[in-house]
């Protein structure tokens, strides 16, 4: 890990990313592509941030963060994954290992969202009387407490992840440079994204648009290759 102020910057950014997922402002900051890009810039590794951002975004394309559904918190996970890949030297294997670690952390983050929802419900039950009397002040208090709770959740998640990165042993050089590990995570991401896009493109006209886009992308890639 780099300088302490940079570390603090990454932690605070992770807090913002976590809050953006549900509490607000839901301005795409919690999307892995955005979270990874900014984390890469903060760490002075913009290429690494983009690489892991794209990698993790592929998994996020299968996620619909709606209502009461369970979904992983891949934004905060991407922040930690970029930090891990940077501290492991940024080779292709390091990207693969950091991506896998990020996916695991994203699942843990998903469970912390359940804890947050339960804590919010308890807070509302505590203020039930005032809510039923139509006290306008209590609405603001509950909202503020919810935001703060989510910020703490996000900071703990990212802080815990960064702490693990700083104490984890450095993987051997052969693993850090192993392109197969990055290929496995990319393959998993492409499979996941194809599944997600397939699912959301379930109806006939939209499915055809997906097929046209896929064909155009493959043709574009063939030209560039």
């Amino acid at each position: 890990m780099t300088d302490f102020p940079v570390w603090v910057g990454v932690l605070l950014w992770g807090g913002v990313v976590g809050v953006d997922l549900v509490s607000g402002p839901q301005a795409l900051l919690s999307r892995p592509l955005v979270a990874g890009t900014v984390t890469g810039l903060l760490l002075g590794e913009p290429g690494l941030g983009l690489q892991l951002g794209v990698l993790m975004e592929l998994f996020a394309l299968d996620t619909l963060a709606v209502g009461a559904a369970w979904y992983p918190d891949l934004g905060t996970a991407t922040v930690v994954a970029v930090a891990a890949a940077a501290s492991w030297g940024g080779g292709p294997g390091a990207v693969g290992l950091a991506g896998a670690a990020g996916l695991a952390l994203g699942h843990l983050g998903g469970w912390t969202m359940q804890w947050l929802r339960q804590a919010n419900a308890r807070s509302i039950r505590r203020h039930q009387g005032r809510l039923l009397r139509g006290d306008p002040v209590v609405l603001g208090r509950i909202q503020g407490a919810g935001l703060l709770r989510d910020l703490v959740r996000s900071l703990l998640l990212v802080g815990g992840g960064l702490a693990l990165v700083s104490v984890a042993p450095m993987p051997p050089a052969s693993l850090r440079e192993d392109a197969v590990l990055r290929g496995v995570v990319l393959g998993g991401g492409l499979l996941t994204a194809a599944r997600g896009l397939w699912r959301t493109s379930g109806r006939a006209p939209r499915w055809w648009w997906f097929a046209v886009g896929l064909g155009a992308g493959i043709a574009g890639l063939a030209v560039l290759a």
Binding site: A194, L197, R206, W209, G213, L214, A216, G217, G220
Partner: peptide, 9 residues
Amino acid sequence: ALLGGAALS
């Protein structure tokens, strides 16, 4: 759907 399909590559 169109952009998502293209984005994979």
